[in-house]
């Protein structure tokens, strides 16, 4: 298992990189790119909640910070997109640190922590919707400058590959963390915080480190979203949809596993597309919300019957197969 994982990571990334060569339709490339963006947001959530056990219901706070920072730095301050990206990521980390410092200092856990993160996301959403700095409800349009130097690509495949590169980096980072002392501390805090403390783990520091990293990773997803769609508004950036998808993907794929968020995002969004087109075919015309109803059912079924997600099922299956 220990040596098996990096090999399987490389294989998965190589397969994903080869996908655009097989599927060249624009809709397919857009879908794959969107999967990568959601995966990245979900990887951020997975680090904090899957490994660290701190369930956030408001990862939109980080996603939206990244997305807005990316747009505002370019449009308002004329900063190049490639420079705006690390700045936006840093802002995500700062927001993560700030939020984590406040809530972990106040000893908030479980549902309280979930509610506080949700409230922060809502406060940001209302502020972004009302403030003139973020252009209010009208949102921000990033001007079209199709050149790689401006982080916009004429060829959709390139954007996909860049997004995949970020996902691959975070896969490697997550794998690395899962093997370090920090990763072990994180899992210890998840399993039993008191026991971890008694063994000398600085739980506050460990959680703070995790939420800071998590904020940066999920903010990166927001940056990619802005660059892909060149438009952002308060409901896209800080709306509950991304908080929900960021937590659903790892839960379905397997919380606290390296590949879980990727597997979950693939299945979740794939299933969403299938449901949407199925209903559109059956009833003629698109029905809003049906894909999310399916997500909700899936969430309950996963919690009830597959607490380890798909990766857990695979692990169980493969360990049974190979003695």
């Amino acid at each position: 298992m220990r040596t098996g994982l990096p090999v399987s990571l490389v294989i998965v990334v190589a397969l994903l990189a080869a996908l655009p060569l097989a599927f060249t339709a624009n809709t397919m490339l857009n879908f794959l790119t969107f999967v990568m963006i959601v995966t990245l947001a979900a990887q951020g959530w997975n680090l904090l909640a899957g490994f660290g056990g701190q369930f956030s219901f408001g990862h939109a706070a980080f996603f939206g910070m990244g997305a807005y920072a990316m747009a505002i730095l370019q449009v308002r301050y004329g900063i190049n997109a490639w420079l705006a990206l690390p700045l936006a990521m840093a802002l995500g980390a700062v927001v993560g640190f700030f939020l984590g410092f406040l809530s972990f200092r106040a000893q908030l856990r479980g549902s309280y922590f979930a509610l506080v993160t949700l409230a922060f996301a809502e406060v940001f959403r209302i502020l972004a919707n009302a403030s003139s700095f973020t252009n209010g409800a009208a949102g921000i349009l990033v001007p079209l400058k199709t050149s790689a130097a401006d982080f916009q690509f004429a060829d959709r495949r390139w954007f996909y590959w860049v997004a995949l590169a970020f996902v691959a980096l975070v896969l490697a980072l997550t794998y690395h963390i899962s093997r370090t002392r920090f990763g072990a501390h994180l899992v210890a805090v998840r399993e039993n915080e008191e026991a971890a403390r008694a063994l000398g783990v600085d739980a506050f520091r460990t959680k703070l480190k995790a939420i800071t990293l998590s904020g940066a990773i999920t903010a990166t997803a927001g940056c990619l979203y802005t660059q892909k769609f060149l438009y952002i508004d308060a409901n896209l950036a800080f709306g509950p949809w991304i908080s929900v998808e960021a937590l659903l993907a790892p839960i379905i794929g397997g919380m606290g596993t390296v590949l879980g968020p990727l597997a979950g995002a693939m299945m979740l969004l794939g299933l969403g597309e299938v449901t949407k087109s199925l209903f559109a075919m059956l009833l003629g015309g698109s029905i809003p919300g049906v894909d999310l109803v399916v997500f909700g059912v899936l969430l309950i079924l996963c919690v009830a019957f597959a607490p380890q997600g798909v990766m857990g099922a695979i692990k169980r299956f493969s360990s049974r197969g190979a003695p």
């Binding site: 219901f57 979930a114 937590l247 809003p288 109803v293 909700g296 969430l299 309950i300 919690v303 009830a304």
Partner: peptide, 19 residues
């Protein structure tokens, strides 16, 4: 888990009504 299950229920209700 309870938190997640009730979140799932809220997603189902809200989007079922939306549909």
């Amino acid at each position: 888990n309870i938190l997640l299950v009730t979140l799932g229920l809220s997603i189902i209700f809200e989007n079922g009504l939306l549909a």
